[in-house]
C-alpha cells in the first residue's frame, strides 16, 4: 500500500469521527482539507493565469498589450488602504461592465427565451391524443407563476392557481431533496468502497 493511500484512509476515518462528536482529530483533518485546497488552488491559478497568460508572454515574448491588464490588476490592490481605495474603482468598473455585457444577452436567450419556447409544446399529439406531458408542463408553469404573483391577494381563481402552484413547487423540492439524499449516500458509499478496497483490502 502506498503512502498516499494510508494518509487518505486515516484522514477519511478522522473526518468520520465527527459523527460521534466534534473532536481535535476531526478538526485537524478539516483544517488540513481547507489548507490543502486553498494552497493547491492558489498554486494552480498562479501558474495557469499569472505565469502562462501574463508573465511569460509579457516579459518573455514582449507582448506589451498585456501591460494594460497588468496595470488594472495592480490597481485592485488600492483597496488595501483607505486613501488609495478609489483607484480600485476603475478595474472594478471594467470587470463589472464587461461581465454584465457578456452575461445579459447570454442569460436572456438560453435562460429565458429558449426555456419559454421549450415549455410551449402542442397539446394534442400527431396521433390525435392529448399530449399529457405538455399539458402538465403548461399547468405547472402557469400555476407556479401564479404563486409568485404578489400584486393581488391570492383569493378566488388566483388562490386556486397558486395552491396548485404550491403542489408543483413541493414536488420539485421533494425530488431535489430525494436526489440530494441519494448524492450524500453515494458520497458515503464512495468513501466506504475506498476504505474497504484500497485501504483495508477487504473487497476486490
Amino acid at each position: 500500500m502506498d503512502f498516499g493511500t494510508i494518509i487518505a484512509g486515516l484522514l477519511t476515518l478522522a473526518i468520520l469521527t465527527f459523527l460521534y462528536r466534534d473532536n481535535p482529530i476531526y478538526k485537524l483533518a478539516e483544517y488540513l482539507l481547507v489548507g490543502v485546497a486553498v494552497g493547491y488552488a492558489l498554486v494552480i491559478a498562479w501558474k495557469s493565469a499569472m505565469v502562462d497568460l501574463l508573465f511569460t508572454p509579457l516579459f518573455g515574448q514582449g507582448d506589451w498589450s498585456l501591460l494594460l491588464p497588468l496595470i488594472l490588476g495592480l490597481m485592485m490592490f488600492g483597496r488595501f488602504h483607505a486613501r488609495t481605495s478609489f483607484i480600485s474603482r476603475v478595474p472594478l468598473a471594467v470587470l463589472i461592465g464587461s461581465g454584465a455585457g457578456a452575461a445579459v444577452p447570454a442569460m436572456l436567450g438560453p435562460r429565458i427565451l429558449t426555456q419559454v419556447s421549450g415549455s410551449v409544446t402542442p397539446l394534442v399529439g400527431t396521433d390525435g391524443l392529448p399530449n399529457w406531458s405538455g399539458l402538465i408542463v403548461i399547468v405547472g408553469v402557469l400555476s407556479t407563476l401564479a404563486y409568485f404573483f404578489f400584486s393581488r391577494e391570492h383569493r378566488g381563481s388566483l388562490g386556486v392557481a397558486s395552491k396548485v402552484g404550491t403542489w408543483f413547487l413541493m414536488i420539485f423540492f421533494g425530488t431535489t431533496f430525494g436526489y440530494t439524499v441519494m448524492s450524500r449516500m453515494s458520497t458515503f458509499i464512495g468513501r466506504a468502497e475506498f476504505l474497504l478496497t484500497d485501504f483495508l483490502h477487504l473487497t476486490r
Binding site: T114, Q115, G118, Y179, M182, S183, S186
Partner: peptide
C-alpha cells in the same frame, strides 16, 4: 453531473439546450 444537480439541469435537457445528461452513481 452529481445526483443533486439533476433537477437543476432537467429543464435544459427538455428544451434541447443540453443534448444529454447522466446523473449520480445510479
Amino acid at each position: 453531473v452529481t445526483a443533486v444537480m439533476v433537477t437543476s439541469y432537467d429543464p435544459y435537457v427538455s428544451s434541447g439546450q443540453l443534448r444529454a445528461m447522466v446523473g449520480g452513481l445510479r
